[in-house]
Nucleic acid binder design. Structure first.
Length: 329
DNA sequence: TTGACCTCTACCGTTACGTCA
DNA sequence: GTTGACGTAACGGTAGAGGTC
């Protein structure tokens, strides 16, 4: 049941609630639409957690629950791929299997670490990984050779520093190949189960902990962008509401001025509107006209009469009071 | 069956490093 | 060469879920 109050400007309707209702995230949402991503993300995280737990318990969690975390972001729309196997289109389609071999070519024995990141090579102060990555990058991608050479030298320098000072915080830049690889994986799975993490780490010649951290940071960046988009949308909504409020206040002032210019209005009997819940027809017990208000009755609009403000008690000169009300179901 | 304890992982806030203008 | 802004890898703390005893 919908009541449309017609107070002059009938061409503009109030649409905020409609918009909010319509723009709930769906798989068909185009980019830019508002979504309730945080709650969805939480649901997805919980689902993934359950999935991971199922994996750890030793049985498959199939069928996978594909959750669209960011409907407005096509990058993050997961493909319908089985989660048990990582498919890397960037790798397999654009570069072929040779890339895989290159990535793994210089993988040292330390890459056979467990997934806890606590073995020798995964020590926070270990200098193994930067070397491996630079070897990999040099051999994988000739166009970055110069920079990677410098990186390698820097890495060597850091390694020696690390050897001297075990407290040095290690930070390395992932190569473009590694980043692209991880990005492609993220498109398919925003979270990883231990198997996937291990597989990715092996393929990229990274420690599982690094893969884990990368996904955590990637999720954080995604959430941040989502928040920015949501804030922008809410800001626009606020502006719209402010403008709407301003317009209504203006109309209210005009109508109050109209009231004072027509003192006989106060002497008129109140109008009571009743609406049948089934047919939504509106009936009135008075023919008094203040302002014409239309009641949106689906196909037809029935002009009725009603007071302009919310139901309230109006003072009458003779001391009586009478309620103006709109009765509806 | 229940509760304590442990492990794992996601998330969050923060820090520190690398890059670039 | 220096500096500040920015992006991001990495860290520590916390909470929740599941497993074990």
């Amino acid at each position: 049941m919908e009541l449309a109050l017609s107070l002059g400007d009938t061409s503009k309707s109030f649409t905020f609630l409609d918009k909010a209702a319509v723009n709930l995230p769906t798989n068909k949402d185009p980019p830019g639409l508002f979504s309730l991503a945080p709650s969805f993300a939480a649901t997805a995280a919980a689902a993934d957690k359950r999935s991971d737990a199922a994996e750890r318990r030793g049985f498959s969690s199939d069928p996978p629950v594909q959750l669209d975390l960011l409907p407005f972001s096509p990058v993050l729309r997961p493909q319908q791929q089985p989660p048990s196997q990582l498919r890397i289109p960037w790798l397999t389609e654009a570069c072929g299997a040779a890339r895989v071999l290159d990535v793994n070519l210089f993988r040292a024995a330390t890459a056979e670490d467990g997934d806890d990141g606590t073995s020798l090579s995964s020590s926070p102060n270990s200098a193994v990984s930067p070397f491996q990555m630079d070897f990999c990058t040099r051999n994988c991608n000739a166009e970055f050779g110069g920079r990677n050479k410098r990186e390698q030298q820097e890495a060597e320098g850091r390694a020696s520093d690390d050897d001297e000072n075990g407290s040095t915080r290690k930070k390395l830049r992932l190569s473009k190949e590694q980043s692209a690889f991880l990005e492609e994986s993220f498109k398919e799975h925003t979270t990883l189960n231990p198997k996937q993490k291990l597989a990715l780490a092996k393929q990229l010649n990274l420690r599982p902990r690094q893969v884990e951290v990368w996904f955590q940071n990637r999720r954080a960046r995604t959430k941040l962008k989502q928040t920015e988009v949501d804030c922008e949308y809410l800001k626009r909504c606020c502006e719209t509401l402010t403008e709407e409020n301003r317009r209504l206040q203006k109309e209210l002032q005009e109508l109050r001025a109209l009231k004072t210019s027509q003192p006989f209005y106060m002497q008129l009997p109140a109008t009571t509107l009743t609406m049948c819940p089934s047919c939504e027809r509106v009936a009135t017990n008075s023919t008094t006209t203040n302002q014409t208000t239309t009641v949106n009755n689906n196909a037809s609009q029935i002009p009725v009469e009603l007071s302009l403000s919310k139901p309230r008690i109006l003072p009458f000169p003779n001391g009586q009071a009478q309620a103006h009300q709109i009765a509806s179901s």
